[in-house]
Design a protein around this nucleic acid. Structure first.
Lengths: 341, 341
DNA sequence: GGGTATCATGAAAGCGCTTTCAAAATCACG
DNA sequence: CGTGATTTTGAAAGCGCTTTCATGATACCC
């Protein structure tokens, strides 16, 4: 490394030109005679000179770096958003810096500093439900951060957060999922959600109930259960639901919060002697990598996470102040069919 | 944003001190009188001043940023490495920049520039098999990059690549996997690999054969098949294997390249009327999130990807020039048992 | 051939910090 | 109260670039 790293002066001296000239050939274009350009380039190569984006950022006050704040990276759901955003950023000549929400939600001071210090050219922030106290902090952080760089929010963004945003219309997705199952002939449709209804900022419950109402089906409280988004929680939730009811009243279809929960449901259903899809239809969400390879292949809502990431970067770079709904689609596979009864 | 972003001079002026003093309170410590510190801090808060890490990097020639080059991010395997490295980096006060191998393996010039321009304080590079032409390019890139920053290689790193490294001992893992199955009583053990034997830089095939030899079992060529690492390929590979043999000769155990391949095997086995684990034991690799939730829960080699990421960062920051083997363990679940016969 | 437009180059001022060195202020103590 | 030691502060140089402005060199035209 180093041992006095070569800088633009070294190159200039060696090539017997001024640093302005070196700078010119570095950035291509501009008027430099072919001969000079050749000579300078030769020296650059010979000396393995590599200009410092730090120094460049110093004068241009552009870093060509964006930031993205995600709850975590281990969940493939977020990894997909990241990937989409990353590719799009690179396509535009930017890099993309990751931040984890736990680091981001420290005290307001430090949190803002975390991103602002780096002088990012913009940031994308994934929002979802937070307990009140953290929510207030988040709002303060966003307000402060906004002074430092343009922001785009994605995910489950409350209406009153006034930022450019791309959001999931989970209520609508739930409504249409119910409609899909109703279309197959189901009348007893359960929903395993992640949070108590009024705590879910996306109000999936509203969509679920609307779907039932659309089909003139009754809302059955025991068909509405909760897990925390993991396979274990999904398994436990369906266990609870099934164990609390006579088999005659068991739902013929279950909509799961996500694919991990659906996977847990699969175990529970198997243990209860239910065959899929004959005895129980199942819909997941997120369309993770393994969904097509489960037995039976899992019908799942594709939230187009990569596309979301892409769009977020585009929105960020465009400077527009729009609020959009993310694209989605239901991927039909073998885990849903008309009820056997 | 901006509208003349506030800098250290603004703060100094407002607080009626010199910029040196502001700089001092910024970095804590050093002798600044409590009264002065208070006054300066008050101005900093009031003006929402946030020091520029760019400018700081300019003088200190440290960026507090590391880089990591991975083949992709969508595969949870890499996401886990990333996560481990990220957390460890943050713990040491560094950020971690991601790069994709496809962007990294452009022509040598641009590739080196990609990382070097950013003046990272070090980089971790995931290495695995590459076609010859790309391999040569990689070596040149590594050689050049080395001038600019300390490097740590991880993954399947050829012996002759002289860098600090943490590598997977896949041959040993295969050997022990075979031994495990032999211990259960299996005598017909198949292996679904990803590359023709001599193309796999980790020579899994050597470990597989060694395992058989240790147990005095014959090497059966038809038990050695190939997929490309996806579930589809795994399914097709096991299909081919089973369809080419009389059921009496079918293997009683399969070692899959990874969990995705194992998942594909599950489908194939099911279609061939095989029950797991009674008729067929199955071992995966990577211990992905879904492994415990398959049916039956999948026995899988845990490569401790997160730990690997952590260790890579530690090695990088330590400056040591060591070559280490990554930790791993076999997670026993229900997909393996003694053969029914 | 003189004057003007055009091109190629260089000098120098910043960008916003850290850091060294020296000066000023405060303290300790006989 | 004076002196030296110590603490607190400021001035200024520099980090490696970009960019503006000025200058010298060429080309073009009547």
């Amino acid at each position: 490394m180093d041992a006095a790293r070569v800088n633009i002066y070294d190159v200039a001296q060696e090539a017997e030109v001024s640093i302005s000239t070196v700078s010119r050939v570095l950035r291509g274009a501009e008027s430099v005679s072919p001969e000079t350009r050749r000579r300078v380039q030769e020296v650059i190569d010979r000396l393995h000179y590599c200009p410092s984006s730090i120094a460049r950022g110093m004068t241009t006050s552009k870093t060509n770096a964006l930031g993205i704040v995600l709850p975590k990276m281990l969940n493939p759901f977020y990894a997909m958003i990241y990937t989409g955003a990353f590719d799009e950023a690179v396509r535009h000549g930017y890099s993309l810096n990751m931040f984890l929400r736990k680091d981001f939600l420290l005290d307001p001071q430090r949190s803002v500093a975390l991103l602002a210090e780096r002088r990012l050219d913009g940031a994308i922030i994934y929002i979802e439900y937070l307990p009140h106290e953290a929510d207030d902090r988040l709002r303060e952080i966003l307000r402060n951060l906004k002074r430092h760089m343009p922001l785009v929010l994605i995910g489950c963004v409350p209406q009153d957060l006034d930022f450019p945003a791309i959001t999931f219309d989970m209520a609508e997705i739930l409504r249409q999922s119910v409609a899909y199952l109703v279309g197959l002939g189901h009348e007893r449709i359960a929903f395993i959600g992640g949070l108590q209804d009024d705590q879910d900022p996306m109000r999936r419950d509203v969509g679920y109930e609307q779907g039932l109402r659309d089909a003139k089906l009754p809302y059955v409280a025991s068909y509405r259960v909760y897990g925390d988004g993991t396979a274990e929680a999904g398994e436990a939730a369906l266990d609870r639901l099934l164990d609390s009811l006579q088999p005659a009243h068991w739902p013929t279809a279950v909509i799961a919060l996500n694919d991990m929960v659906a996977m847990g449901c699969l175990s529970s259903a198997r243990r209860h002697g239910l065959r899929l899809p004959e005895d129980l239809s199942l819909i997941g969400c997120d369309n993770l990598l393994f969904a097509p390879h489960l037995f039976p292949p899992l019908t799942s809502v594709n939230l187009n996470q990569q596309r979301l990431g892409e769009q977020a970067v585009q929105l960020l770079l465009s400077g527009e102040k729009a609020r959009r709904q993310a694209e989605w689609s239901l991927i039909e596979r073998a885990s849903c069919s008309k009820p056997a009864g």
